[in-house]
Amino acid sequence: MDINIHEVGEFQIAEVTSEGFVINDKEEGLDLLGNLYYHGFDHVILYKTNITPNFFDLKTGIAGEILQKFSNYRVKLAIIGDFATHQSKSLQNFIFESNKLGHINFSESLEEAIRKFSNK
């Protein structure tokens, strides 16, 4: 796992990259949040390809628990990927509502994710 730092205005964004999954379950998600928070990051970018597919099956509860912790700690999160391929209506509604509220964003590109962070 690597962390690329993007400086935008007064804050730093941690872009997490990896060859494999960085989140396989809720414990790994919470560990990642804790480590990034400890290092002072309050904006995080993850890639869909680095998150277990179970995360996107809302019935598993993985997404809900991890994203709630990001909200509790006031750490903004962007997940980059192609979400149009998901057929789940509940997931599409969740993505829509998350993007509308702005704390958790689902974006198509790094540039879009950074732009959303800098507009909030």
Rank of each mutant, 00 (worst) to 15 (best):
G20I: 09
S98M: 06
H86Y: 15
G29T: 07
N50L: 09
N24Y: 14
L30F: 06
F117G: 00
Y38L: 10
I114E: 10
I13V: 13
E65M: 08
D82M: 08
F117D: 14
F94D: 04
T60H: 11
T17H: 04
N99F: 11
G40T: 10
N24V: 06
G9P: 01
F55D: 04
Q12P: 03
E112N: 02
A63C: 01
N119I: 03
F55A: 03
G20K: 15
I104W: 09
K100L: 15
Y38D: 13
V8Q: 07
I5T: 15
K69I: 01
F21A: 07
Y38S: 05
A113I: 01
E108M: 06
L67C: 08
K59N: 10
F117R: 05
K89A: 11
K59M: 07
G40R: 10
H86T: 11
T52F: 02
H103F: 13
S71T: 04
K116D: 09
N119P: 02
D42K: 11
A113H: 10
N4M: 07
R74P: 00
V16S: 13
F96Q: 10
L58H: 12
L101I: 11
N54E: 15
K69V: 03
L91R: 07
D82N: 15
L33Q: 07
V75I: 05
I79T: 12
T52S: 15
G29Q: 09
L110G: 03
E7V: 14
I3Q: 09
I104L: 13
L32R: 12
F83S: 10
T49N: 12
Y37Q: 05
D57Y: 02
E108D: 13
E10W: 05
K89N: 05
Y38P: 01
I79L: 09
L33N: 07
S90F: 07
I104N: 02
K69L: 00
E28Q: 15
T52R: 14
V8I: 15
F21T: 04
S71L: 09
Q68C: 00
G64W: 02
Q12H: 11
E10N: 03
H43P: 03
L101M: 09
K89Y: 09
I3H: 09
T49K: 13
N105H: 02
V75H: 04
A14I: 05
A63P: 01
K76P: 00
I79K: 12
G64F: 01
L101K: 14
F94N: 11
R115K: 15
D25P: 03
R115Y: 11
D31C: 05
D42P: 00
T49I: 07
L32T: 04
S71F: 01
Y37A: 04
S71N: 08
I23V: 11
Y47F: 15
G61V: 03
E7G: 03
T60S: 12
V8T: 14
R74E: 15
I80E: 10
Q68F: 00
N93F: 06
E28M: 13
A113R: 14
G40D: 12
D2L: 07
K120Q: 12
N54L: 14
K59A: 14
I62S: 10
S118R: 11
E10G: 00
I66W: 11
H39R: 15
L32I: 09
I114S: 01
E108R: 12
A84Q: 13
S109Q: 07
D2G: 01
L101W: 07
R74L: 08
I79A: 06
F94G: 02
